[in-house]
């Protein structure tokens, strides 16, 4: 059984001193999905679980000082989580050799299965130190990846604006979207800068637009599409749509699929003579 295999792998990693801590999924109290567990002893691996409720992107924990203090980690990732890890690597936020990455072949997560999983192109992580399991349920055609966005873009600009006004009006700036994001690692987020204030801290419509649009742009060509922000939002704002529109634009214009090539230069920090410029008006 895959869960046993995962536990065995982790037990060995801790026993032979390869890592100090395993960042994995553990059982959550009834009614919740799973939660991150931080295991430091070989006996502790019995807490690890692997199931279709392993929803969180645990890569977000690599930015937490409390977790870093535990020593060299092994981290359990799905293919989408791994893309975030690769972006961190590209952006020099982590030394790949200092993290042991355990990839899990993934049939999709969530009950019901999440939108991103239905059109997942990856399923099996590619750059891990070890990959466990195999895919038993291939995702629907990856061509369906932009369907939700395409449907949304059929609306007129006025309708789309009305939609975002309605949706973002609910935001109370709890910043769950930012905190669960592995790529929101700024030591001080622009929205927390108050000398002077750059982005209005108020959860007003203006402040909310400023926040979400800024975040989407900052994640352009970086967002791994793990949808952690969308899952985390307590008021049900479909942030996935914002991220997807950025992802589609960078993919179509710059052939950039973030986190799929550890050797690639980050798009924002890179210039190619072939880059299109007709969109600059």
């Amino acid at each position: 059984m895959l869960e046993q295999k995962l536990r065995q792998t982790c037990r060995e990693l801790l026993a032979n001193g390869t890592v100090k801590v395993i960042i994995g999924y553990g059982a959550a109290p009834a009614g919740q999905a799973t939660r991150a567990v931080f295991i430091t002893t070989p006996e502790g691996v019995e807490q690890l679980v692997w199931n279709d409720r392993c929803e969180a992107n645990l890569v977000a924990y690599l930015k937490r000082p409390e977790v870093r203090a535990l020593g060299k980690p092994a981290i359990v990732v799905k293919a989408c989580d791994e893309r975030a890890l690769v972006v961190l690597q590209q952006e020099a936020q982590l030394e790949r050799a200092n993290v042991f990455v355990i990839g899990m072949a993934c049939d999709g997560i969530g009950a019901p299965r999440e939108a991103k999983c239905r059109s997942c192109e990856d399923q099996v992580p590619r750059f891990c130190d070890v990959v466990l399991g195999e895919v038993t349920k291939p995702a629907d055609a990856a061509s369906a990846r932009w369907d939700e966005l395409a449907e949304f873009m059929k609306k007129s600009p006025e309708e789309r604006m009305a939609y975002w006004q309605q949706e973002l009006a609910r935001c109370v700036k709890c910043y769950a979207c930012r905190q669960v994001c592995p790529l929101c690692y700024c030591q001080r987020c622009i929205v927390d800068k108050n000398r002077p204030t750059v982005i209005s801290t108020s959860p007003s419509l203006k402040g909310n637009f400023a926040w979400h649009v800024t975040r989407a742009f900052h994640l352009a060509a970086r967002c791994a599409g793990c949808d952690a922000c969308t899952r985390a939002c307590p008021v049900g704002i479909n942030l996935r749509l914002l991220n997807q529109s950025m992802a589609k634009a960078t993919e179509e214009n710059f052939q950039c699929r973030p986190g799929t090539d550890p050797q690639a230069q980050p798009l924002i920090g890179n210039y190619a003579t072939g880059d299109k410029e007709e969109f600059i008006r």
């Binding site: 939660r35 991150a36 567990v37 931080f38 977000a60 924990y61 937490r64 409390e66 977790v67 109370v172 700036k173 709890c174 910043y175 769950a176 930012r178 905190q179 669960v180 204030t197 209005s200 801290t201 108020s202 985390a232 307590p234």
Partner: peptide, 25 residues
């Protein structure tokens, strides 16, 4: 606290949490 990612989802959904900030805009 290890698994806590430090957002305000708990406090902002709480019926009794009442902390606020005063800002000039």
């Amino acid at each position: 606290a290890l698994a806590c990612l430090g957002c305000g989802a708990c406090a902002y959904g709480c019926p009794t949490c009442h902390c606020f900030d005063i800002v000039d805009e």
